[in-house]
Design a protein around this nucleic acid. Structure first.
Lengths: 352, 352
DNA sequence: CTGAAAGCGCTTACAG
DNA sequence: CTGAAAGCGCTTACAG
């Protein structure tokens, strides 16, 4: 009998069914089944209710609970491009961390259009998400004000905004680029350029700043023509920016790209000019995305921990949702590593 | 006044607020705001209600609606590995198609452990998802029976199960591998091997069958030692299987891998043996995942349309959810393309 | 320690 | 064409 009931795991078993069988009031069942309120109920009753609930295959209906408690146990996640391999491990880490707190995540692929982003945030809000994780923010993003006004807890991941209105978890972008510059200097480069990411994104701005900072520290302050900004983080933009940079500063022996896709585009630009990497120009990327160890030449790059970033951001949002004091002031900077591969080498000796 | 209200877009505006302002009953507002039931209401009333709703920034509470209608407008998606770039565009397509029907998706990263998969399916069911998309199924998967018993509409994507218990959308795996074999034969190969995917997955089994079928059609029936099965779809397994295959059949001039990651592992095995690709051994992959055009040598591979696959699967689930007749019998086979790059070339002339 | 009651915000037969 | 009422399945003050 009870076997059969268990096997069915019927969705239509309600609290009331359990209460009737247990000969107690539904409110008692509700308490007995809630770890946080279980202590209010006599042990014997808790035991009886639990057994019965298991036998009947009871599963509480989170929708009904949500309506009553006004909490959905749902978190919305906005990413600029779900197909970009950098975001998958972030999403995965986020999901894992939040699941530990009983939250499910709804991921929305937002693209880079501000209107669409706002629309999706509104959608998620009307779904009554309890919190939001944004991997989409620009340095000055109105969406953030929108969230704050609606009093929805938000954490930013990978990118942060300038006004620092919300907690974030990002990789230390300045330091990452600093590692690349140090490496290049240490093997003898003194003419190093930079393909910057879009300046409206914190990653673009921070990495550019990190580049300038590190170069200065080595006594090699870059001039304007040593830096070209890519229009977006993709190979095509990297190729275009690479061409522009190679034209503007033909004597560079090394180029630090703001991310791997830009570096890959640059590699293509070099090939088209019959310049070899690393013999003529050393190249570094950022992110260590999948497969950049197998391109030709294998890419020297800054490794970030996107999964750890997601886990950390999820934990931070959990703290925020629990109302932990100070959570709203937390800012997490993750330390990146440099992975040296074959796209960097000592510069060729000058002929003169 | 109304400006201000609009700007606030307050979450706590309920149907009742609108009804009171409009001087009608809540049920009337409910009808007026539902496109499907709007025709029951006088045009003037509809107009008044709509205006008021907009002014007040009313957004219906889907949780309350769900409780009443017993439909959550949520779809669960199970993928084996969210970080695998093949699945991102599938997820993206799925999300887009389902959003068009008013559904949000909850994506769960399930791994390949059957217990965890069942657990996650139960989780999603207790969230009362209206339907499920599985990208995880093995050829004989008990999870599927579980879903059917619970009467949750399911569609399979990318992989299908053997018993054909649920609608699916997959790439034509046999045909895809057939394209690779044809290409290799057309450029002169007659000793072709296969690194198969795991046989408990339809992709592994179908591609293997496609390989055997195509080889037979060319009068080159493979022997057992021409095929090695990889333990899983990753580079390490590809390298191991590649080594085994090269040992077992050293005279192969071309190898068809069941997916790109396996092909990449094989490339590594070749390099370790100082065999060059394509000079000594031509290699083909499957999926055309991002960046395989930039590895060395750029990979000839079978291109599938993972985004289209997701869109199609989403549309199919929508049809199922709408109860469209015949939807449950639909099976969609998408035609793949071959992308020829530099990892395949005519075989070297035999010395003898 | 337990119960009775109210109510979260909708939708939908049922009347009229 | 519109209203009044019931109810989806929970949780939580309020009593006792």
């Amino acid at each position: 009998m009870s076997r059969k009931a268990t096997a069915m795991a019927d969705q239509s078993i309600t609290l009331r069914c359990v209460a009737e069988r247990a000969q107690v009031h539904t409110s008692t069942v509700s308490r007995a089944l809630d770890p946080a309120r279980r202590h209010l109920i006599a042990d014997a009753v808790v035991a009886r209710v639990e057994t019965l609930a298991r036998e009947l295959g009871y599963r509480r209906n989170p929708i009904a609970a949500s309506l009553r408690t006004r909490r959905s146990k749902l978190v919305g996640v906005l990413v600029p491009d779900i197909a970009n391999p950098v975001f998958s491990p972030i999403i995965s880490g986020l999901g894992e961390a939040l699941a530990a707190g009983g939250y499910s995540t709804i991921v929305a692929d937002a693209g880079s259009d501000a209107k669409r982003q706002k629309h999706l945030i509104d959608e998620l809000m009307s779904r009554r998400v309890d919190g939001l994780v944004l991997a989409t923010v620009r340095r000055n993003d109105p969406a953030l004000r929108h969230c704050r006004e609606a009093k929805v807890p938000v954490v930013l991941v990978n990118r942060r905004d300038e006004s620092d209105r919300a907690p974030w978890v990002v990789s230390d972008d300045r330091r990452g680029i600093g590692l690349a510059v140090s490496h290049l200097c240490s093997i003898g480069h003194i003419r190093i350029g930079h393909i910057a990411g879009p300046r409206h994104l914190s990653t673009g701005a921070q990495r550019r700043a990190g580049f300038i900072e590190a170069m200065r520290a080595y006594g090699l302050p870059p001039v304007a023509s040593d830096i070209t900004e890519a229009a977006s983080y993709d190979r095509e933009a990297g190729e275009a920016a690479g061409n522009a940079l190679l034209d503007a500063a033909p004597d560079l022996t090394a180029i630090v790209a703001a991310n791997d896709l830009l570096a890959l585009g640059l590699l293509r630009a070099l090939k088209a000019r019959n310049l070899s990497c690393p013999a003529h120009v050393s190249v570094t990327g950022h992110n260590d995305m999948p497969l950049v160890d197998m391109v030709e030449p294998p890419l020297t790059t800054v490794r970030i921990g996107p999964r750890a970033m997601g886990l950390e951001a999820g934990a931070l949002l959990l703290a925020l949702l629990r109302g932990e004091p100070g959570a709203d002031e937390r800012r997490v900077l993750l330390a990146p590593d440099l992975v040296v591969r074959a796209s960097t080498a000592a510069p060729l000796r000058r002929k003169s």
